[in-house]
Design a protein around this nucleic acid. Structure first.
Length: 297
DNA sequence: AAAACAGACAACCGCTCATGA
DNA sequence: CTCATGAGCGGTTGTCTGTTT
């Protein structure tokens, strides 16, 4: 990690003469034109090359979240919303991972939509947006009220989520004991990364095809082997029920994987534990995502 | 009519990770 | 191996717009 005190800290937009705030249509056009001509990348130097008084980060963000042709604008459709809910239940706040599964939508957009709409919606339905479980129906004496509050939820949350607090989950390596599970996962999945297709784990197998395997362990955590597996895994999830009516006829090589003869595990079992994804899983997903980005974006 | 407030979304910041020298 | 750098992620803040007082 970069040491902020090393003197090499990148000031990014703090430089004088660097514009901040909302983009103007003129700036948008300059950026779009430039990227169409020269392509993406080299964000740090792009502003200078393109003639923009912005930092590279800002340019990248603007392009990724707004200007790219494949970015879909407009309202989130009901089926998209359903998918977001479903994926969030599985993945937690891994917005980019979720976004990677929703064509045309960006992580930022989904994050915003979650925070402004879905989170509140779930709360109004008596569902904890973090755990996707019912909010404490009968607050016991030990429970402090108001687990509507995102922050307080972390203290009163009965679920096994090892990272109740998004901030701490990010800044600190999680030390909760339930993480040992993912430590295991991490060591076994991430190291060999894309080249191993087989894992021996106990737990019940979901039946991914060929040489891939994904499991729901006895603790109900999803365990995946590599990015392809993970990808297929999510595919199966997506195609499971969300688009019934839209895509159900669409043949999908990995269809039925997630809900084999075991019933709809997503609706019942997977829900809670997956929110407990830890830093290790995060790391795993990151690696997934890095590859995804190139495919999807 | 205007000030205050609230919601929605765009943008920024700090951080981690991957990669290459 | 270490270090520098680019890229990307997720939380948070800023700004705009619509609504309420």
């Amino acid at each position: 990690m970069r040491n902020p005190s090393s003197g090499t800290k990148t000031p990014c937009c703090s430089k004088v003469g660097i514009k901040k705030g909302p983009w103007t249509p003129e700036e948008d056009e300059i950026l779009s034109d430039y990227i169409k001509r020269e392509g993406e990348g080299r964000w740090r130097t792009l502003p200078k090359r393109a003639g923009l008084l912005r930092c590279g980060k800002s340019c990248r963000l603007r392009w990724m979240n707004y200007l790219r042709p494949c970015v879909k604008r407009g309202r989130i459709a009901p089926d998209e919303e359903d998918l977001i809910l479903r994926l969030h239940r599985l993945l937690g706040n891994r917005w980019s991972l979720i976004a990677g599964r929703i064509p045309g939508r960006t992580d930022n957009e989904i994050k915003n939509y979650w925070n402004t709409h879905l989170s509140k919606k779930l709360i109004s339905q008596g569902i904890d947006p973090r755990t996707h479980k019912p909010l404490n129906p009968l607050p016991s004496s030990s429970d402090i009220i108001s687990n509507n509050d995102h922050h307080l939820a972390s203290t009163s949350n009965p679920n096994p989520n090892p990272n109740p607090d998004p901030v701490s989950s990010k800044t600190e390596a999680t030390a909760t004991d339930s993480n040992e599970h993912f430590t295991y996962l991490h060591h076994h999945n991430q190291k060999p990364q894309a080249d191993d297709n087989e894992m021996e784990m106990d737990g019940f197998m979901l039946g991914l095809p060929t040489n891939h395997s994904a499991y729901i362990s006895q603790d109900n955590y999803i365990e995946t082997c590599n990015e392809d597996t993970f990808s297929s895994f999510l595919d199966s999830l997506i195609n499971d029920t969300v688009f019934t009516g839209h895509q159900q006829q669409q043949p999908n090589p990995v269809h039925h994987l997630a809900n084999p003869q075991h019933g709809n595990v997503w609706e019942s079992e997977v829900v809670s534990p997956m929110v407990g994804l830890s830093e290790e899983q995060r790391a795993l997903d990151r690696s997934h995502h890095h590859h995804h980005h190139h495919h999807l974006a």
